[in-house]
């Protein structure tokens, strides 16, 4: 066997198992989902099924124009989650990481870090069920606390049902951004900060002129992660509210899931929602590559 032949064979042997599984499980279904969204397929056999026909953008038009506006409610909730990340988790995570990386406290750095990250390793289903019990119903902790102030308080359905969900999301994932910022702050050359200090720079100037600029790329990356994280949000809300009351806490992924797998299935609608999610992901990937190009030197 020639060297070239051996190299080629080895390459195939090393790469093919991963490529075949990936194409089957991820790449093909992505394309398949988009194609299905253009048909009226709604369960049963796919191939050789005479009832399946190409309907073009009909499902999309219905999704965008149906009177309940479920799609827009769900999309708005996804945006709210992004806002919680961008205006809540990212600044808070940055602040915590800054405190930890600059060693503003002498003891317990590692303990604080471990504890604040803890909710991230727990199944969102567990968290969702837990907070459902804490927040909703007559026997909830929230009612207990309200009764402390007003013994006659009665349980009512919240007028702003997304608020508890957003608070739990803030609670759960702030530690994730803290870890990302912390890892990158620790990559800043300590000699640079030391030199600035010797030149008389105060803590505030070090933050503003060294740490923030060095992390600008990471902050943008975090915002992109926040959007993709919002698209991936499912389990927590599924377990906490199931999208209720009246679908007001649904996000796109939950709306898709409920359309396809609960009650009378509506696959065309669910596939249209999926395609919107794929499109958002593709846009994110393009932005990531573009941002990656701009900040390449800073991030590495």
């Amino acid at each position: 066997m020639t060297i070239k032949g051996e190299k080629r064979l080895s390459y195939a042997a090393l790469v093919l198992p991963a490529v075949i599984i990936y194409l089957t499980v991820v790449a093909f279904p992505t394309v398949f989902s988009v194609l299905l969204s253009l048909t009226n397929y709604n369960g049963g056999r796919i191939f050789g099924n005479p009832n399946i026909s190409f309907v073009g953008l009909k499902s999309y038009i219905w999704m965008f124009t149906e009177p309940s506006g479920n799609f827009y409610t769900s999309l708005a909730n996804n945006l709210l989650i992004v806002c919680v990340s961008v205006f809540g988790q990212i600044p808070l995570g940055f602040m915590l990481a800054y405190i930890l990386s600059r060693k503003l406290i002498k003891r317990g750095n590692s303990l604080f870090q471990t504890m604040i990250y803890l909710p991230n390793v727990i199944s969102p289903i567990i968290i969702g069920v837990l907070f459902n019990a804490i927040i909703y119903g007559r026997n909830s902790v929230l009612m207990e606390i309200r009764r402390l102030f007003n013994p006659a308080a009665v349980f009512t359905i919240n007028t702003n049902p997304m608020a508890p969900v957003l608070i739990v999301i803030l609670w759960m994932f702030t530690g994730f951004y803290m870890i990302i910022f912390l890892a990158n702050m620790q990559r800043i050359d300590p000699a640079v900060i030391e030199a600035a200090r010797i030149d008389g720079a105060k803590e505030g100037r070090i933050l503003l002129h060294i740490i923030l600029p060095a992390l600008s790329g990471v902050i943008v990356t975090s915002a992109i992660l926040a959007i993709s994280g919002s698209l991936k949000t499912f389990d927590l809300i599924y377990a906490m509210t199931s999208g209720g009351p009246a679908g007001q806490t649904r996000v796109l992924s939950l709306y898709m899931y409920l359309s396809a797998f609960q009650g009378a299935p509506n696959y065309p609608l669910a596939n249209a929602i999926s395609t919107v999610m794929v499109l958002i992901s593709v846009v994110l990937i393009v932005i990531t590559r573009w941002v990656g190009g701009i900040f390449a030197e800073k991030v590495d």
């Binding site: 991963a18 990936y22 194409l23 089957t24 499980v25 991820v26 790449a27 093909f28 279904p29 992505t30 398949f32 989902s33 299905l36 796919i46 992109i224 993709s228 698209l231 991936k232 499912f234 796109l252 992924s253 898709m256 899931y257 396809a260 797998f261 696959y267 669910a270 596939n271 999926s274 395609t275 999610m277 794929v278 992901s281 994110l284 990937i285 990531t288």
Partner: peptide
């Protein structure tokens, strides 16, 4: 192709996966 997969969400391919 693999890199693109990092940002894709599972939920958006759930129906085709279920059918497959």
């Amino acid at each position: 192709l693999f890199i693109v997969g990092i940002l894709l969400t599972l939920q958006s391919i759930l129906i085709p996966l279920f059918l497959m």
